[in-house]
Design a protein around this nucleic acid. Structure first.
Lengths: 178, 178
DNA sequence: ATAGTGATTTGATGATTTTCTAATCATTCT
DNA sequence: AGAATGATTAGAAAATCATCAAATCACTAT
């Protein structure tokens, strides 16, 4: 995906398209192209080097000049080849999270506390969304909020502290940043 | 050219490629895509609207949702179709200028003063490059410089004034801006 | 009607990218 | 060797574009 994106980005520029069209007709060199397009050699060089490193053009020295030519093979593919994914599009982490949540929550209630550490953290994070950063809660408030999700608020409250999602000092609890 | 460029620019964006890949699998709607990609609905809407106005996607309302779908026809073309010019690449004006100059100058000398107004202006502009803006020249200096290009410096000097390329006051001449 | 939900627009911000000038590099020719 | 010419790089300025938050719009269902 990344590579195809870079390739498309290279094509999607007015100056580079013009350069490619010139090279479709005949090989050429920096100064000549610059003159044809009324731009500086530095600019043309910048574009040619970019395209060279992506394999779109090649160059070779001939006497005074460095002759650039097109790598014509590249343009035969149909367009959808360039658009179609070769990696999953949706963020894998996000997908996994969603799966876990939909497995353990039914109608907004936690049906079971996950045994696996990784899954339990995801579930705890979800519950943590009901707390706000910067607010101090006493134990009664914490229990009440957690109880909306699961009867065993004690276990979950303890896990919140253990996993570092919340902190506690004496009788007050608070949600940690991030 | 312009249109193809716009099309390529639309394809050459990571988020839009991801959206297209999602739509390749199944039709979808703003909020769902936003959720899949962990972006805001506003952002997804922005991209979809852009692609819609280019005919890449379509949309239609279905109950609560506005369902977006792919216009699949577009992706069948081979890539070079998108790159190849359908207008001349080189600036027509520039080309014309070049032709005129190469017709009337040989080895740096003007072989004949063009009769056509348009062509004469181009030739005069070329000669004017030997003068600098902001410098005052007396008639002798002007003649000397013009003489490098053509024997009949008087005619050309007069044409320079007449065409507005240079100005004169009493004995001094100067090149006008631009 | 109106409350609720998804879609869109607006305005601001930040990131990326193109372009130029000036300086430097590399090669050829004298 | 060094002069000349084309190519490249570095650095800075300007333009373009994606993203978000907040406000507004459009439709549905009660």
């Amino acid at each position: 995906m990344k590579e195809k994106l870079e390739f498309l980005k290279l094509l999607a520029d007015e100056t580079r398209l013009k350069i490619l069209n010139i090279l479709m007709c005949e090989d050429s060199y920096v100064e000549k192209i610059a003159c044809d397009l009324s731009l500086t050699p530095a600019t043309i060089c910048y574009h040619l080097k970019k395209m060279e490193s992506a394999g779109i053009v090649r160059c070779s020295r001939a006497q005074f000049y460095i002759i650039y030519s097109l790598n014509r093979d590249i343009f035969d593919k149909p367009l959808y080849e360039l658009v179609k994914k070769d990696e999953p599009v949706v963020d894998e982490d996000e997908k996994y999270k969603k799966d876990v949540l939909s497995n353990f929550f039914k109608y907004g209630r936690l049906v079971q506390i996950p045994m696996q550490r990784k899954k339990r953290d995801i579930v705890l994070c979800e519950i943590a969304k009901s707390f706000e950063v910067g607010i101090r809660y006493d134990e009664k408030e914490v229990n009440e909020i957690i109880h909306r999700f699961h009867d065993d608020h004690c276990t979950i409250r303890r896990d919140m502290i253990a996993s570092g999602i919340m902190s506690r000092e004496k009788e007050t609890y608070w949600l940690n940043e991030k």
